[in-house]
Simulated scan of single mutants.
Amino acid sequence: MNGKKILMLCGEFTEEYEIFVFQQGMEAVGHTVHVVCPDKNAGDMIATSLHDFEGHQTYTEKPGHNAEINKTFAEVEGELDSYDAVYAAGGRGPEYIRTDPRVQTMVRHFHETGKPIFTICHGVQILMAVPGVIKGRTVACLPACAPEVAAVGGIYYDAGPKEAYVDGNMVSGKGWTALAAFMRECLKVLGTEIRHT
């Protein structure tokens, strides 16, 4: 079976782990992951962030490593039919790229075609910006996003820190600590089978 082609939507200060771990894990099993950011070209770099819970009332944010964009954003706009799934990574990036009509068009394509949609942490903010995408759907995300989920007709699931949630073709997780479970469920939705001998 041929590997799948996954579109990863990122912005500046997207969560580092949710870029690198997802991309490298999917590529390790033969899938292709195109990391894109509005108005960025292949070879450009974006800043990333690291969110953590260190005893304060909310998460802390620290600079992460720079991440390389490996596909020009403008090219992807005309190639959406060639992708098998879309992934909305979390962190700070979703907050602003969700307002970009081109990003909304991309998300709408995957929603309307019934292709898999993967979201973790704040990545759900990207889906919220497109009417109907999470309406009636159950999603896990950072608790701070729960009121927004409800406001657009979604159902917030309070997932454990290492748990993923699957609602049909949509896989979601609370944050980067859930990446192992999240990616395992994404692989199942993609039809990827890993055998141990």
Rank of each mutant, 00 (worst) to 15 (best):
D44V: 09
H56M: 11
R92Q: 13
V21N: 10
A67W: 02
R98T: 10
P147C: 02
E54K: 03
K188I: 00
L7T: 02
V103Q: 15
D44N: 09
H31L: 05
V166T: 09
L7A: 04
P147G: 00
T14F: 01
T14P: 07
G11R: 13
R184Y: 12
A47P: 04
G25I: 09
R184I: 04
G132A: 10
G154H: 00
T72C: 12
L142P: 02
V133W: 15
E148A: 06
Y59T: 01
A140R: 02
L80A: 01
A47L: 13
M1D: 14
V21F: 10
N169H: 01
V29P: 02
F118L: 05
G30T: 01
T192V: 03
S172N: 06
K115S: 03
P161Q: 07
E95P: 07
G153V: 08
A151G: 03
V29Q: 02
K174G: 01
M26G: 02
L50N: 09
M128Q: 05
R98H: 11
H109L: 06
F118W: 00
H111F: 14
A129D: 04
M128E: 10
P94R: 08
K5N: 15
H109Y: 13
L7M: 06
T197S: 14
W176F: 13
V29I: 12
G191W: 08
A180P: 12
V139A: 02
Q104I: 01
G64T: 05
I19V: 04
W176Q: 10
K135W: 00
A88P: 05
E75F: 11
T99I: 06
V124F: 00
G136D: 06
V76Q: 07
Y59N: 06
D158F: 05
D158L: 11
P101M: 05
V86M: 05
G30Y: 03
H31C: 04
A181P: 13
H109P: 07
V171L: 01
E148T: 01
